[in-house]
């Protein structure tokens, strides 16, 4: 349905997006995973025709949309990362304003506003000014605006940033329902890997403007099929301890988290013994030891050497 070919965007000579190849089939939900500054939002802006690529192409059903965006815009709904609303207006007035911009017929618009407000759980607060809403409620109105014209493709750019867990769950549930009940094609970007794991069938992992891995969740996890994720808790974490662990031959990554150390190491029968010896050598006390199934977070750590929230 939508595909990009060597999509590139450079700002003052620096490539924010670097030759990204990407496709999105009708009815599927695809995640774009990466840390802040990875180039996700720029990629989305180019796909949604808001900015022109420096080079490369974006195609809708095989037809380039870089210079003729009207076909895509008709079927596209975009939820931006910012709260793109008029805070001085009520939720209802905001929806009406954007509905009129999208030329939704008057007779349909009123019903559409009410059903969308119902979907985002704000029907009873529709007359309230947006500026009186909590962050989570604002995000829900932000999403509702993008749904008014019944888009076939919905792009959500980090729609859950900075909100409470309840609103976050509401948004995730809403996106899932849209995909399952209405067959909406979804492109979801986030740096929360658990959201992408829950919602998306395929995932693109981006870092420094490039796609560094792609596939289904299980395909990505298979990158770490020869590795174990081990979490150990010690009484005190020192630089010296981390260095000693890193010197173990099988260890690929060590990440510090308070009193815990997360270690990605090659599958090996004697890795446990080696770790215990390292802790003893540094005169630390081992309090807890846990072998974990690798997650997408671990895959990202493995691929880039840093976490998604870095």
């Amino acid at each position: 349905m939508i595909e990009t070919y060597k999509l590139t965007k450079a700002f003052k000579g620096k490539r924010a997006v670097d030759e990204v190849d990407f496709y999105l089939d009708e009815g599927e939900s695809v995640g774009l995973l990466g840390p802040n500054g990875a180039g996700k939002s720029t990629t989305i802006s180019m796909i949604s025709t808001l900015i022109k690529p420096t080079s490369g192409d974006v195609k809708l059903n095989g037809e380039s949309i870089v210079h003729n965006s009207s076909k895509l815009r008709k079927i596209l709904g975009v939820v931006p990362q910012e709260i793109a609303l008029y805070e001085e207006l009520s939720a209802y007035e905001n929806l009406k304003f954007f509905g009129q911009l999208y030329k939704v017929e008057k007779s349909i618009l009123e019903k559409r506003i009410q059903s969308t407000l119902e979907l985002v759980g704000l029907r009873d607060r529709q007359k309230d000014l947006v500026k009186t809403f909590s962050g989570g409620m604002k995000r829900r109105v932000n999403i509702a605006v993008a749904l008014l014209h019944n888009p076939k493709v919905l792009i959500l750019d980090e729609p859950t940033v900075g909100i409470d867990p309840q609103s976050r769950n509401h948004i995730l549930e809403m996106v899932r329902r849209m995909k399952e009940e209405q067959g909406t094609t979804i492109l979801y970007t986030s740096h929360y890997m658990e959201e992408v794991e829950q919602l998306c069938e395929r995932i693109y992992v981006m870092d420094h403007g490039k796609v560094i891995a792609t596939g289904t969740q299980s395909e990505l996890l298979s990158i770490l099929s020869n590795e174990d994720t081990i979490k150990i808790q010690v009484d005190k974490v020192t630089d010296s301890l981390i260095e000693t662990i890193q010197e173990i031959e099988q260890v690929h990554q060590v990440e510090e988290d308070k009193d815990n150390l997360k270690i990605i190491a090659k599958k090996s029968s004697n890795i446990v013994r080696e770790l215990v010896l390292a802790v003893e050598k540094e005169k630390a006390q081992l309090l807890n030891f846990q072998m974990e199934k690798p997650s997408l977070e671990d895959v990202f750590l493995h691929l880039t050497g840093r976490t998604l929230r870095d």
């Binding site: 808001l50 975009v78 931006p80 910012e82 793109a84 609303l85 008029y86 999208y102």
Partner: peptide, 14 residues
């Protein structure tokens, strides 16, 4: 432009 409303307007048929 800063709040993103302008982008939304640009994405509409207007």
């Amino acid at each position: 432009k800063v709040t993103g409303v302008r982008n939304r307007i640009l994405l509409s048929p207007i």
